[in-house]
């Protein structure tokens, strides 16, 4: 590897400083709190208490995984179609994907409450046709839906970026060599778009698994995800130690699952 020049090292300095201040030091504080008790004494109590949250962890991962897979199923064909369109249509489609993100996550989620409510917009509509109201708010389905709705742009954009950079000549040569549509997709597009899929998967899965706002509003406070448990420890129980150990374990589990996903994709060079 070539030695880095002075200028290169200087260029990296602002981010290194940023990372040290806002990533490394806070992480160290999380670790400190996770292994101490309220009096600052070293203790494994918080870690032991985590056993009570096994169910919560499982549910969080299950819901986020379902949400991420559904997001992928919706996003992949859309990103592919989008990358085939003319430059002008691509811009408009991109704007439409981004449009909901111009609005704050909290407001978007609050609006969905009104739509999914017992007397909400959907049930009012169904009532016109004499259909019994559906129970949507306060169910796991509503929470998973909220995750999909809020995070889908994070899946579409990376996949689209990768797809739009696939060299057309590769597709042409695949055709020349006798590939039909399906094998072109399976043997050329899919492998080449994998990096986009992996980064989209990460960008949807990670915020979903740690969300608390979506589960509180759309789950009606009845679906407790790990983010809710952490939020409650920090905001109302004032047990920073337990909150920190929950956060720490969540981070470790996410890290492990991302390593697994990357391995599964067969590409070790990808960033987590």
């Amino acid at each position: 590897m070539k030695k880095r020049s002075f200028a290169q090292r200087i260029a990296g300095a602002p981010y290194i400083l940023w990372a040290a201040l806002f990533i490394v030091i806070p992480m160290a504080i999380v670790v400190y709190y996770a292994f101490t008790d309220a009096n600052g004494q070293f203790s494994f109590d918080n870690i032991k208490q985590l056993a009570d949250y096994k169910e919560t962890f499982l549910i969080s991962f299950e819901y986020s995984f379902i949400a991420t897979v559904i997001t992928l199923i919706i996003s992949y064909p859309f990103a592919y179609l989008m990358s085939k369109k003319s430059a002008a249509s691509q811009r408009i489609m991109m704007m439409l994907v981004m449009l909901p993100m111009w609005m704050n996550l909290l407001i978007r989620t609050y609006s969905w409450m009104n739509i999914l409510e017992r007397n909400g917009i959907i049930n009012n509509f169904l009532e016109q046709f004499g259909i019994e109201p559906l129970k949507m708010i306060g169910t796991p389905g509503a929470v998973i839906f909220g995750m999909i709705y809020n995070y889908i742009p994070y899946m579409i954009i990376p996949i689209y970026n990768v797809m739009s950079k696939i060299d057309k000549s590769l597709l042409e040569s695949a055709e020349d060599l006798g590939s039909n549509g399906l094998s072109k997709l399976r043997r050329v597009i899919l492998p080449l778009s994998m990096p986009g899929v992996i980064s989209g998967f990460t960008m949807v899965f990670v915020p979903s698994v740690s969300t608390f706002y979506i589960s509180q509003k759309l789950g009606g406070g009845k679906v407790m995800l790990i983010g809710d448990a952490i939020e409650r420890q920090m905001q109302t129980s004032y047990n920073y130690n337990l909150g920190a150990s929950l956060s720490l374990v969540l981070m470790i589990v996410i890290l492990i699952s991302m390593i697994v996903v990357n391995r599964f994709a067969g590409d070790d060079d990808l960033l987590i």
Binding site: M113, R118, I137, G138, K217, G220, G221, K222
Partner: peptide, 8 residues
């Protein structure tokens, strides 16, 4: 219960 709420 339908939901646990505060301001909602």
């Amino acid at each position: 219960l339908q939901a646990r709420v505060m301001d909602e």
